[in-house]
């Protein structure tokens, strides 16, 4: 553990209960109620309820296999493409039920962007990678507008200066960190409201990781960000809220500083102090 995270005595932790953040002014963006998720017969998520606030960074932590990535992927219904997967409970985004019967998954995903653990640029040029989402969703009217949006997205993802002279070269020639920022640019290009990031820096070196973290910090002005990470320091550095998952359950959720300094649950404390997991 680093020195800046000091677990407080358990007596103090009971002052702030899970799920009741103090003095939050930002509205609730995503409201999850009693969500269960099944792979075939196996229940992977058990009764998750939480409210995710707009323009905040919310981090999901927990040991691998605890369900944090699975939960993230229920938010843009990415799990729909897994055969045998089933969801019950509700996910409400801006007051709309994401699993409602009339919902168009495609337009949901257009508003809830996603960045994956392993960067997955398409085997096309840098420009085409960013332009792809614009093209398939018919978001631009002219070539000039397209180029503008591509540049804007690459700038927002803090990669413009590195690639502006080779936009039409293959994206696969970029370094791992650049590829991941390109994938962020690609997700930003279609101007989603929410950005889901599934361990976006886990495959990167410390310098590339730092750049992604700075980027996340900048992006929260415009986006609601949910980030899965197995790295607790990272959660402590970048997030406003932290949710701790264990064996498919949400153990504790609250302001990041509180989770790391005054966890209410013994399990959370053991995890953030490195005693388990």
């Amino acid at each position: 553990m680093t020195t800046d995270v000091r677990p407080l005595p358990p007596t103090l932790s009971s002052v702030v209960r899970a799920g009741t953040p103090v003095a939050e002014t930002a509205p609730v963006k995503i409201d999850v109620r009693n969500l269960n998720f099944y792979y075939g017969q196996k229940r992977a998520l058990d009764g998750i309820s939480m409210a995710i606030h707009a323009n905040r960074v919310t981090a999901f932590i927990g040991p691998s296999g605890c369900g944090k990535s699975t939960f993230l992927r229920t938010l843009n219904r990415m799990n729909d493409i897994i055969p045998g997967a089933r969801v019950d409970g509700s996910v409400t985004i801006d007051g709309h039920d994401a699993y409602g019967s009339g919902v168009d998954v495609v337009s949901l995903r257009r508003q809830v962007g996603m960045v994956f653990q392993k960067s997955n640029p398409f085997p096309k040029s840098i420009f085409e990678n960013v332009a792809y989402g614009l093209r398939i969703n018919n978001l631009t009217r002219s070539k000039a507008e397209m180029a503008e949006r591509v540049e804007e997205s690459l700038r927002a993802a803090a990669i413009w200066d590195e690639v502006k002279d080779r936009l039409h070269e293959s994206a696969l020639a970029l370094s791992g960190g650049q590829q991941q920022r390109l994938c962020i640019a690609r997700a930003l290009a279609i101007r989603p409201d929410i950005l889901l990031m599934d361990e976006p820096a886990s495959a990167l070196d410390p310098i590339a990781t730092q750049r992604i973290e700075e980027l996340v910090y900048d992006l929260k002005k415009a986006y609601t960000i949910v980030i899965v990470t197995h790295n607790m320091q990272q959660a402590a550095r970048v997030s406003d809220y932290t949710a701790f998952f264990w064996l498919g359950r949400l153990v504790e959720y609250g302001r990041t500083d509180r989770i790391f300094t005054a966890p209410a649950e013994k399990l959370t404390e053991d995890y953030v102090t490195g005693r388990c997991g």
Binding site: M78, R109, R110, G113, N120, Y132, I136, N137, R186
Partner: peptide
């Protein structure tokens, strides 16, 4: 790779 399919779906592709 399935990561390519997921990347595309995540951008709102059908």
């Amino acid at each position: 790779p399935s990561s390519i399919r997921e990347g595309s779906y995540a951008l709102g592709a059908t």
